[in-house]
Amino acid sequence: MEENRDKGPEIVGFACSYCTFKASEMAGSLRMKYPEGIRVIQVPCSSRVDPAFVIKAILEGADGVFVAGCHPGDCHFIKGNFFTRRKIAALKEMFKAFSMDGRLKLFWVSAAEARRFVDKVTTMYKELKEERDAGKKN
């Protein structure tokens, strides 16, 4: 476990199969690099993500979790991501109440935005890494 820790933060991502997961595949085929601690899980729609999944991931050792889907209004199922937005915004507020802000992120990435996907996850990875390094020094 300790060895794993030194590699860097582990991030679990829930990605909508119509937008963000497609973007992550495109990032792969374009040979773009993003940190290896990021595990993407394909879900049929971002609104499939029960906040229980996020809480389970965080409490069982993930350093961060992101939920990503199509831009609002572009959902394959017409309105799925509007529900995601409400649910995840509320979950973030709950994490804030538990002083765990920054552990959960919500991204909108369309199928064409491979660059944006890589930028978003890399920024999140770096933030979590810095936070952890600062924690180690103290």
Binding site: P72, G73, K79, R85, R86, I88, A89, L106, F107, W108
Partner: peptide, 16 residues
């Protein structure tokens, strides 16, 4: 119940 409905134009700062 809020989780069962939505407004199209809300929660602008929800995205990171």
């Amino acid at each position: 119940i809020p989780y069962l409905t939505f407004k199209e134009d809300e929660l602008k700062d929800a995205e990171d």
